[in-house]
């Protein structure tokens, strides 16, 4: 996709000083391109370090290819950059270790995250990968809110948690798939136990 056709994120230009007005170009794994302001980038520790390390000038940004973000798709990246643009210039929260961690979801974030769980899952992965602390906080809080007032049985269903029995079965299956002889050894062990012989240990 050309730069002209790229889904440019709305920017509040009045909020950015003229001399610092610089946009970076990023490309998702499905080749969608985004222009993101320098100030918005600061919300992401990963991207901020990346652009710093690359030492791009305004000319470089226009002439060099967009910075590829290989493991995030365009739909998710659009949400990420929309969030970053909206919260640009805001301080990155510091964790004080409280339990539960106090996180409030602002109205804008709530609307932005009014998405299906598949996309929310990808958004959390992206926030974690790009190290966007507050986006990770609010998206995780949204997932945490799904647990409100539920019993363990309901939580197992909501969060797709396997039971202990299912975990055991999966573990056994994985072991067997890794080593086909494991079953034979297991059977031999059981046979010896039945015969009252000594165990392997």
């Amino acid at each position: 996709m050309s730069v002209e056709n790229a889904p440019v994120v709305d920017v509040d230009e009045a909020a950015i000083p003229v001399e610092k007005k610089m946009y970076y170009r990023f490309e998702s794994n499905d080749k969608k391109e985004f222009r993101v302001s320098e100030l918005a980038i600061q919300q992401s520790e990963t991207l901020n370090r990346l652009v710093e390390a690359m030492g791009y000038t305004s000319e470089d940004v226009e002439n060099k290819p967009a910075i590829a973000i290989e493991n995030i798709d365009g739909k998710t990246l659009k949400l990420v950059f929309q969030w970053c643009e909206h919260h640009k210039g805001e301080a990155i929260p510091v964790d004080d270790g409280s339990v539960p961690k106090i996180v409030e979801i602002p109205e804008f974030d709530a609307k932005l995250m009014d998405i299906d769980n598949g996309l929310l899952f990808k958004l959390i992965w992206a926030a974690d990968y790009l190290n966007i602390v507050q986006l990770l906080n609010v998206s995780c809080k949204k997932v945490a809110n799904m647990a409100q007032g539920k019993t363990p049985a309901q939580l197992r269903r909501v969060y797709l948690l396997p039971s202990d029995e299912e975990d055991e079965a999966a573990k056994r299956a994985a072991q067997e798939a890794q080593d086909p002889r494991a079953r034979e050894v297991e059977e031999e062990f059981e046979e010896r136990k039945r015969q009252g012989g000594n165990s392997f240990f």
Partner: peptide
């Protein structure tokens, strides 16, 4: 009921 594969999240996010 909204289903969400919690255990497939990165460790840091799950902890969060």
């Amino acid at each position: 009921v909204f289903l969400f594969p919690l255990l497939l999240l990165p460790v840091n996010a799950l902890k969060n």
